[in-house]
Design a protein around this nucleic acid. Sequence first.
DNA 1: ATTTTTTGAGACATGATTGTATCATATTGT
DNA 2: ACAATATGATACAATCATGTCTCAAAAAAT
Lengths: 185, 185
Amino acid sequence: MKVDARVQKSQQAIISTALTLFNQNRDVTFSEIASQAGVGRATLYRQFETREVLIKAIALTCFNRLDSVNDIIEEEAKSAIHAIELCFHYVMPFTEEFKFLAEVEHLIEDDPDIIRIYKQQFDETIALVQQAKKEGSIRKSLPNAWLATLIEGLFFTAWEAISEHGMSPEETATLAFDSLCNGIK
Amino acid sequence: MKVDARVQKSQQAIISTALTLFNQNRDVTFSEIASQAGVGRATLYRQFETREVLIKAIALTCFNRLDSVNDIIEEEAKSAIHAIELCFHYVMPFTEEFKFLAEVEHLIEDDPDIIRIYKQQFDETIALVQQAKKEGSIRKSLPNAWLATLIEGLFFTAWEAISEHGMSPEETATLAFDSLCNGIK
DNA sequence: ATTTTTTGAGACATGATTGTATCATATTGT
DNA sequence: ACAATATGATACAATCATGTCTCAAAAAAT
């Protein structure tokens, strides 16, 4: 089934505008989003009935963007630990998407689709960690849940370094992976 | 100058209640805070004129609680790296305070008092890191800003592990410090 | 070219929170 | 004990975002 060209155009404008505005202020109004996106307020309500629906739509867009690098990583990765390293480098530029997902996580955490995606992502990280343990590049004494949380947390840390201290995504990706593997000693 | 006993009682009830409610839902209303705290809504407005004033008051309380462990740490610490380790262990139980500060940071980041406190805390971490470098327990090749951000980020990671995966504060403190120093290899 | 659909603008009702004011009552300081 | 002060309840106005609806005009589909 086809989607009207006008609808597609509005939706994209709305989503990308709302993504930015949400990161600036979690309480943006629909009025502001509409006017910034260059569409009528009524149009916004027509296509995203509630705030939750809009947030979920943006979240799905963010997930898709982040997922889009998976294929490249799987192709290039020579080992599990190498996949983790590539993940830092390829995902790091998606600062905006990452921040959004972190900000709104608790607003949509009850949604079954979102739960599924989060769970899948977590499971993938766990699998990667297990494989890396098998390959001898991660100590087996560390709990998997901690390792997965630690890796995810390093993205937050890196994003903080980017936005607060003006570091570049490449630099933080390198530092994050180095600190993860070797520690600071 | 003395503070009326009733005022003190109300304020404490309000602050500790609001701290909890804010962590559950950033958009709690003054009505809910007042009723949960067992005070009249008018009293809440009398003592905290605006939402920002209330948030700032809670934040200052949180900072004081976190600062309260500094004396113990300075007394016990045998080295800079040991001070960092102790910091993880002593601060980790203050999950609620830490989460609150993370949640509301951007709501009060323009306040001069808050800026001062954040800056001071950051500078202290930087000083600790420099000292640890001097003592040979941290690689000198790593940028100080990254190290400070990394340490702060590990608190977030640990808090995530506690709230999402049911780990204990002690366990996460140990894991965080171990991962920080030695990495996962 | 004609029909169908979407759009933007605006009007409107609704509901909720905010913020202020009042006043009798209860508590505190001295 | 007594004066001063804080409190809770309540009422009230003001503001603001939400959500729905209508309608003429523009754009797309056929």
